[in-house]
C-alpha cells in the first residue's frame, strides 16, 4: 500500500456566514499528482491556503510529511513549495533575483540559492533570461518563473494552484513536462485547475469539490466510469454532471 504523505481530516473554514470549506477529508500518497477540481467558489484555494499553512483552519487536522500543520507549521513549511494562482513575483527584479530571494527566505545559503535558481531556470527553459526583468517577460514566462520559485528549497510537496492560467499551448506543454519530471523525481503534487484535460493528463487521482465539500474522489478512469464508458465520456462530462450547469460567481 502506498505511503500517505498528506492526510486531511474533517477540515472546516468559514468567512463570516460563508462556509468556504465544509468538512473536507482526503489523503495524498507520496509521489502522487493529486488533482483538486471544482467550479469557482468551490473552496479549492481556501483548502490550499490552509494546507500551505497561511490560513488557519476553524476545525480539522492536516498532517504533512508526518508533521501537524497546527502544531508544527514551521516543519511543514520546510518541506512544501507553493505556486499560487496569482503571479506572486517581484516584477521590478530579475528572474534570478526573484528566485535567489525566495531561496534565501526558504533558508538556503547564498551560493546554494543561486545554484539552485540557475538549475530551476534551466528546467523552465529560462536560463538565458536569468538577468531579465520579470516585468518584461511574457505571461507564459512569468508562469514558469512562478513555478520555478515554488521549487526553491527542494520541497517534497508542491501546491500548484492553477499554474497554467492564461498561457500559450507551448508554455503549458512545457509546464506539464516539468510537472511530470518532478513527479518522476519523487515529488508529491497537489494540482488545481479549471482545465479538465490537464487534470486528465497529469493527475493520478482527482477530487471534485463543490460547495466546500468533496463530492467525488477517484482516478480519472473510475470517475468517468461512474457516468458511462470511460472511452467515450470526458472528465468535463463528469464534472458538469456532478457540479451542475448553473453559472457560478
Amino acid at each position: 500500500m502506498a505511503e500517505e504523505f498528506m492526510v486531511v481530516k474533517d477540515l472546516y473554514k468559514s468567512f463570516k456566514d460563508l462556509k468556504a470549506v465544509n468538512g473536507v477529508s482526503f489523503s495524498i500518497y507520496k509521489g502522487e499528482i493529486f488533482g483538486l477540481l471544482g467550479p469557482n467558489g468551490a473552496g479549492k484555494t481556501t483548502t490550499i491556503r490552509m494546507l500551505s499553512t497561511v490560513l488557519e483552519a476553524d476545525k480539522g487536522e492536516i498532517i504533512i510529511g508526518g508533521h501537524s500543520v497546527k502544531k508544527d507549521a514551521e516543519a511543514v513549511r520546510s518541506i512544501i513549495g507553493v505556486c499560487p494562482q496569482d503571479l506572486a513575483l517581484y516584477e521590478d527584479l530579475s528572474a534570478l533575483d526573484n528566485m535567489v530571494f525566495f531561496g534565501r527566505m526558504a533558508g538556503m545559503e547564498g551560493k546554494e540559492a543561486k545554484a539552485q535558481a540557475m538549475e530551476n531556470l534551466k528546467l523552465m527553459g529560462l536560463e538565458g533570461r536569468a538577468k531579465g526583468k520579470v516585468g518584461k517577460f511574457s505571461g507564459g514566462m512569468k508562469r514558469r518563473i512562478n513555478l520555478a520559485i515554488a521549487l526553491m528549497g527542494s520541497p517534497q510537496l508542491l501546491f500548484l494552484d492553477e499554474p497554467t492560467v492564461g498561457i500559450d499551448p507551448q508554455s503549458r506543454n512545457h509546464i506539464f513536462e516539468n510537472i511530470q519530471g518532478l513527479q518522476k523525481k519523487g515529488l508529491t503534487i497537489l494540482y488545481t485547475t479549471h482545465y479538465m484535460e490537464e487534470a486528465d493528463r497529469l493527475c493520478n487521482r482527482i477530487a471534485i469539490m463543490d460547495g466546500g465539500q468533496i463530492i467525488a474522489l477517484d482516478t480519472s478512469y473510475n470517475l468517468k466510469k461512474q457516468i458511462g464508458s470511460p472511452e467515450k465520456v470526458t472528465l468535463e462530462d463528469v464534472f458538469l454532471k456532478l457540479t451542475g450547469r448553473s453559472l457560478r460567481d
Binding site: R49, S52, T53, V54, E74, R77, S78, I80, V82, P84, D86, L87, A88, L89, Y90, F102, M105, A106, G107, I149, G153
Partner: peptide
C-alpha cells in the same frame, strides 16, 4: 494583493 507576502509566509518567514 499579489500574494508575495503570503508566499513568504509559506516559506518559513
Amino acid at each position: 494583493q499579489n500574494h508575495t507576502l503570503e508566499r513568504l509566509l509559506a516559506s518559513s518567514v
